[in-house]
Amino acid sequence: MTRKVVLLVEYNGSAYKGWQAQKYDVPTVQENLEKALSVIANHKVSVICAGRTDSGVHASSQVVHFETDEERSERSWTLGTNTHLPSDIAVVAARYVDDDFHARFSALSRRYRYVIYPTALRPAILSSGLTWTYKSLDVGAMAQAAECFLGTHDFTSFRAIGCQANTPTRTILNFSVQQLGQYVVLDVRANAFLHHMIRNFAGVLMTIGAGEKPISWAKQVLDAKDRTQGGITAPPTGLYFVDAEYPDHFNVPSRPLGPHFLPYVEEPEYALSR
Rank of each mutant, 00 (worst) to 15 (best):
A160P: 08
C49I: 00
A244Q: 08
D138Y: 11
F155N: 09
T237L: 03
F261K: 10
G51R: 14
F158A: 04
V204R: 02
P123S: 04
V115K: 03
L194V: 03
G258T: 03
Q30G: 05
T228P: 11
V6F: 01
C148V: 13
Y270Q: 01
L272C: 07
W77Q: 01
C163Q: 12
E34W: 12
F201I: 00
R170H: 09
D223W: 04
Y270P: 06
F175Q: 00
Y24D: 12
F175G: 01
K23D: 13
Q178K: 12
A218L: 03
T167F: 07
S55V: 00
L205N: 05
Q30K: 13
V64S: 00
D223Y: 13
C163F: 10
S273Q: 08
V45H: 02
F250C: 03
A224T: 04
L79A: 12
Y246Q: 11
E266F: 10
A210F: 07
I125V: 15
K4M: 11
S128A: 11
V115D: 10
H65D: 13
A120G: 06
V5Q: 09
L173D: 10
V97A: 00
F241N: 15
A94Q: 09
N174V: 11
S61Q: 15
N191A: 06
I40C: 06
H153P: 05
V64F: 04
R75P: 04
R199S: 11
A145I: 07
L108D: 01
F201R: 00
D226M: 09
Y183L: 02
C49Y: 02
T68Q: 11
G181Q: 14
F155T: 06
L239E: 05
S216F: 07
H65K: 13
Y134E: 07
V63P: 11
L239N: 09
F101Y: 10
R52G: 07
Y114W: 00
K225Q: 14
V265C: 05
D100N: 15
A218N: 07
Y114S: 03
K225A: 07
F105K: 10
V63Q: 13
T119G: 10
E67C: 14
S76C: 08
K44D: 08
D154F: 04
A271Q: 15
P214S: 14
S87K: 03
H102Q: 14
A218W: 02
Y117K: 12
Q229L: 08
D154C: 09
A234C: 01
P268R: 13
H58F: 13
T119N: 15
R255P: 03
V115S: 04
A202I: 01
T53W: 03
N166F: 00
G151H: 13
D187L: 06
F101C: 02
G151C: 14
I125T: 11
V252T: 03
F105N: 04
G181A: 12
G211V: 04
V185D: 09
Q164N: 04
G231E: 06
I125A: 11
